[in-house]
Amino acid sequence: MAAGTSTTPHHVMVIDTNRCVGCWTCAVGCKEVNNEPLGYWWNRVLTTAPNQSTSAKKPASENIDVPWGEYPNVEMSYLPVACQHCNDAPCVKVCPVQATFRRDDGTVLVDYERCIGCRYCIAACPYGVRVFNWGGGEYAPGGVVGYGKDYRTDGHLVFEPERPKGVVEKCTFCVERIDVGEQPFCVEVCPLGARVFGDLNDPASEVSQLVNEGGAVQLLAELGTEPNVYYVPTRRRVMTET
């Protein structure tokens, strides 16, 4: 599926796994800017083996920061995962009321006024990044934090500081920020500069270079979902010489 036209940007995010140190700042920033209730994470950081194919490798542990291998021949990498903003998104296809929709810029969003909470999308999403708002959420700082206002695009209500009970939530690419030329908040706060956001239609953009020449790849590319989030694979390093 072609993304956008020449006048519409094609928004993509590229995450460099050579830079990501698994610090969770992006995830906490996401939690802050979107006022995610306790227990809910739109964005999270997995500990993986470098360029992990988990079909071949069992997770070393359910805990973070636990490496693969036997001391001192060990290896470890991190994989931040939020909505992949698929061009051919299974969640869009299964939504019976078109609450989940794809904008021309590639951003996949949920219209909270249309969502009926059937959760078909949660089952359909191969990346497991959607959360269901069961209601009664508790908020750590005891008040609304982050963007703090409603946001609509083409009439769709795609952000509310506190989502109503019974809707499905997920990463919005910080649509309210990118529409005014700002970066998604996770990109802004990442202390490593591991996250790059931009326009794939612009061949000079950093994301274009990373996708076209930097070898950035998509997660579960074989499923044909065509994510707009890319990952720069980990270059191998000599860890020990034993």
Binding site: G39, S53, Y127, V129, L219
Partner: peptide
């Protein structure tokens, strides 16, 4: 990078947490 579907479906869904890699 080859990450297969199973990587993301390692267990039954934990609905509240969202991501299904239980």
């Amino acid at each position: 990078m080859s990450v297969t579907r199973r990587a993301f479906l390692g267990g039954s869904a934990v609905a509240v947490g969202g991501l299904v890699v239980a």
